[in-house]
């Protein structure tokens, strides 16, 4: 079953987020206060290894599980949206100490208050969808 693979990768992600302590509100505070290298180390290693991967994929036409050559789409060049949206997300990231991935993982840890944060995030997404045409992109 095709979707089962994604369930397993999701489980791995939940374990990795926990053991890396990236789900910790305190770790995010430490990061925004520049008082530890921990979070920078995690993201840095993933980015450097990822850069090598992207380089190799492009150079050698690597195929995915379906046998198709992997093509990684460029992000849309909506620079204003990246900047303003990114800044707004940054405010929320510091407040809740969690980006979307860790939010879900924390629910699994039994912190049910996170469900209120996720519901609020859905409201935020809905409001963005409603205002999209009026915002600079």
């Amino acid at each position: 079953m095709k979707l089962l693979k994604f369930l397993l990768v999701g489980i791995l992600f939940g374990i990795v987020m926990t053991k890396s302590e990236a789900i910790s509100w305190f770790r995010i505070q430490e990061m925004f206060r520049f008082q530890s290298f921990h979070m920078y180390g995690i993201i840095g290693v993933a980015v450097v290894m990822g850069a090598l991967l992207h380089f190799l994929i492009k150079k050698y036409d690597v195929k995915n599980i379906f046998g198709d050559v992997i093509q990684i789409k460029d992000k849309p060049k909506t620079y204003k949206a990246s900047f303003f949206g990114g800044t707004i997300f940054g405010l929320g990231w510091a407040m809740t100490g969690a980006c979307p991935g860790p939010l879900y993982v924390l629910v699994g840890h039994g912190y049910l208050i996170i469900l209120i944060i996720i519901m609020s995030a859905l409201v935020g997404t809905f409001v963005y969808g409603a205002l999209k045409s009026k915002l600079p992109h």
Partner: peptide, 14 residues
Amino acid sequence: GGGFLIGFGTRYGG
């Protein structure tokens, strides 16, 4: 408020 900003900001910022 924090949750709202996460939803709004991530989708706006892509």
